[in-house]
């Protein structure tokens, strides 16, 4: 029983970060229609910027204040330059999706290369609140608990933003039907770029939280992109609450598998992914 509770709590802690990464990808793919394979690279960059800031004495959690807006701006500009260009040149949405994905690959190579040039490919880590706290039957690192709380808070704030502000409504309208939203007076190019920017910012924040808990490496991005892909497939493409809940579910499942056989944790994502695609490709919260 204690074991299950441990796995459950451990899964929730990592699940908060997964939720955040996945909500970002869900915005980029579900609304912006770009399956951004470089999503994890924004996360990696966020983690390294945090590392660099904390080495200069900035509190890692405060680094978010610099990190998130920076990622937002980068994402926004990228969408306005590259992806909007592809969108207007594509004859139909299907072509845009595949060309957008290929361009995202290009982005992945570029960001990876720049990161390796700056930081190489060895792991980096620092200590922050690395004390143990009793939670349930056993002890957990304080930094992980704080990271999870932080992730959940940001998820909730973003959900409130979507539900109650004017920009949030524009985003939800665009997610339902891009073309119609455009006809109703939503500035589509702006809203889609904003979604991409928010997606990048969430990846950046997730990067900060990961750097607080775990060692970081320039090659870590792709793995998180894969996890986020599984989560948004589980939660339903474009469904923000679906990604939020899906993150915790995947967190718990992978923690369980990792407990039993760490070498097969990634294989577990993939098998969940296969089953999902075959049984319910719309996801648990899909329309």
């Amino acid at each position: 029983m204690d074991l299950f509770l441990n796995i459950f709590i451990g899964g929730l802690l990592i699940g908060g970060i997964y939720s955040l990464v996945s909500m970002g990808l869900s915005l980029q793919y579900g609304v912006g229609k770009v399956y951004n394979i470089a999503h994890g690279e924004f996360l990696m960059f966020g983690a390294f910027i945090t590392y660099w800031l904390q080495s200069m004495g900035v509190n890692p959690l405060v680094a978010v204040v610099i990190n998130a807006p920076l990622m937002f701006i980068v994402g926004f500009i990228l969408y306005r330059t590259v992806f909007t260009g592809i969108r207007v040149r594509s004859p139909n949405p299907g072509v845009f999706e595949s060309n957008g994905m290929l361009a995202a690959f290009g982005l992945y190579f570029i960001v990876q290369n720049i990161a390796v040039l700056i930081w190489g490919s060895t792991p980096y880590s620092y200590q922050y609140l690395n004390t143990s706290v009793a939670l349930g039957p056993s002890d957990f690192h304080l930094n992980r608990i704080i990271a999870a709380v932080f992730a959940i808070a940001i998820g909730v704030i973003f959900y409130i933003f979507l539900a109650s502000t004017r920009s949030g409504k524009a985003i939800r309208a665009a997610a339902q039907d891009t073309a119609t939203a455009g006809l109703m007076g939503v500035d589509i190019n702006f809203v889609l770029a904003m979604c991409f920017g928010f997606g990048a910012a969430m990846a950046g924040i997730a990067g900060t939280l990961i750097s607080v808990c775990y060692p970081i490496q320039t090659t870590m991005g792709l793995g998180y992109t894969v996890i986020a892909t599984v989560v948004i497939t589980l939660g339903g493409l474009g469904s923000i609450p679906g990604s939020f809940i899906g993150g915790f579910i995947i967190g718990i499942i992978t923690t369980g598998v990792a407990y039993w056989e760490p070498g097969l944790a990634v294989a577990a994502y993939y098998i969940i992914f296969i089953i999902l695609l075959l049984v319910r490709p719309k996801g648990i919260m899909g329309r």
Binding site: G106, Q112, L117
Partner: peptide, 11 residues
């Protein structure tokens, strides 16, 4: 810079 150039050419 191989990957960087590769990515730029792809885009």
């Amino acid at each position: 810079y191989y990957m960087l150039i590769f990515g730029l050419i792809l885009i």
